[in-house]
């Protein structure tokens, strides 16, 4: 009975991991995060396969997971090369930048307006009497980010 309980627990965990990866793949717009989520779906399937392999006392499940790891390595290499090429073209990782590859009868992607992120504390600049021309602010301080 314990083996059956173990199988059920693992299948539920695998299903949840697959679902979380699916949510990320559908929702996120960063191409690299999308590929991470695809790998996470593979992990969910791996967990289920290992559980079935133990339940049926067969090495087939673990063999399949080994080959999945090999295929995932190939996939990651090719995908990252493609992402690098795409990044060179548009200078960002947004998958919506390639909406021109959509079906011919679908409407194009419209970016909705977003409120800009408010910064926590504006930097306190020294108060100077107006004299001469205003010096340019150092670029490093205008682009300061608390978290990457």
């Amino acid at each position: 009975m314990s083996e059956l309980a173990l199988l059920e627990n693992y299948l539920i965990v695998g299903a949840m991991l697959f679902g979380i990866g699916l949510i990320g793949f559908l929702a996120r717009r960063n191409m690299i995060v999308m590929f991470l989520c695809a790998e996470m779906m593979l992990q969910g399937v791996s967990v289920s396969l290992v559980a079935w392999g133990r339940f049926h006392n067969d090495f087939g499940g673990q063999m399949l997971v080994l080959f999945m790891i090999a295929v995932a390595a190939c996939e990651a290499a090719v995908a990252l090369a493609l992402i690098l090429v795409l990044f060179q073209k548009t200078k960002n990782l947004d998958v919506a930048a390639w909406h021109s590859l959509r079906e011919a009868n679908l409407p194009g992607f419209q970016e909705e307006r977003l409120p800009e992120p408010e910064c926590e504390e504006p930097p306190a600049w020294p108060h100077l009497p107006p004299a001469g021309v205003q010096p340019p602010l150092p670029q490093q301080e205008t682009e300061y980010r608390r978290d990457v």
Partner: peptide, 14 residues
């Protein structure tokens, strides 16, 4: 490929 600043497409979801 890290663009400067927090990218707009990372802060929204489809």
């Amino acid at each position: 490929a890290q663009p400067r600043g927090r990218a707009r497409y990372d802060r929204v979801s489809w």
